[in-house]
Write a protein that binds this DNA or RNA. Structure first.
Lengths: 154, 154
DNA sequence: CTACGACCTCAACTTAAGTTGAGGTCAAGG
DNA sequence: CCTTGACCTCAACTTAAGTTGAGGTCGTAG
């Protein structure tokens, strides 16, 4: 698939999307299976993505960096048209929501750090008395399997 | 195994450790397999833990809350005597080390939050120009499988 | 001495977010 | 027209941190 000569076409191949977004082809397939992005198919069953997918992926990556799991991102993104680009307005709504998540995590880590500082001298760590030990028992419900540890507020 | 009448024995059963530490029995087995904690065995092959294990578990839980993976905790803990309690001095060294990790994560999240705030209005998210998109391409090396996302500095 | 709860091991399953590989098809340059 | 590189699907594997279940033993109260 050498590039279509001069004009930049309106539709992008997976490879092009991968290169432009910095996300691997296999990850793009995966995102599509998860409903995070959508594509048209050519006669030969190859994916063609609208350019709006790049912005959509950008949003996904930012949310991921904020620690939001893909499932939640899909849900948040799911509300708006699957194939079309994310509008500035949508991004505003989403980023505002995720900002709260980030802030909660910052608050938790800050509290942990401060207590850590306070406890460096004492070394108590008693289950009943130490501020480090007691409020930490937050992850506990949630079924089997791994827990993505650093996601407090929810 | 009803409790040994009056006197609190020097050794704890798994069940007792589980109850006192808030960690499930299966997790304690798991920690032992991973070399995070150690136990003696009775004639009937049942575990007996020294009381120092409680402090050790406390340290593990705090480190986990800080986002340190068990493997790293094991490595850090591995330096000091496996069966014996963690001394205040050891805790000082470990907590100082982990504090840096926490601070790096706080810094990353704070940067993300600030850029998010700046970008709520613009909605650009261009791969080349937006501060949210560019510096985010940090996780990329590391082989197959899931990445525990929110662990930047390393 | 027997029943019952606590304990033992070992293997298989869970979730998240992908990666890797096998086996086969598309499309465009030469 | 044919060869290559890009693409396709599907299944299996990866890591982390455990959980769940099967099948069997320990130990103590009654």
């Amino acid at each position: 698939m050498t590039k279509p000569a001069g004009a930049v076409s309106a539709w992008l191949t997976v490879g092009e999307v991968a290169e432009r977004s910095g996300v691997s082809v296999s990850a793009l397939h995966f995102y599509e299976r998860k409903g995070l992005i959508a594509s048209m198919r050519t006669g030969g069953n190859q994916r063609r993505f609208p350019r709006g997918v790049l912005r959509r992926i950008a949003v996904i990556k930012v949310a991921q960096r904020a620690g939001i799991p893909l499932g939640e991102i899909a849900a948040a993104l799911g509300g708006l048209p699957a194939g079309s680009p994310v509008q500035a307005e949508d991004w505003q709504r989403l980023s505002a929501r995720w900002k709260e998540d980030i802030e909660a995590r910052i608050a938790d880590l800050t509290a942990l750090r401060d207590n850590l500082a306070g406890c460096i001298g004492c070394g108590c760590l008693s289950l009943g008395e130490c501020p480090l030990r007691n409020p930490a028992d937050r992850l506990a419900a949630g079924g089997a399997g791994a827990r993505l540890l650093p996601r407090p507020g929810i």
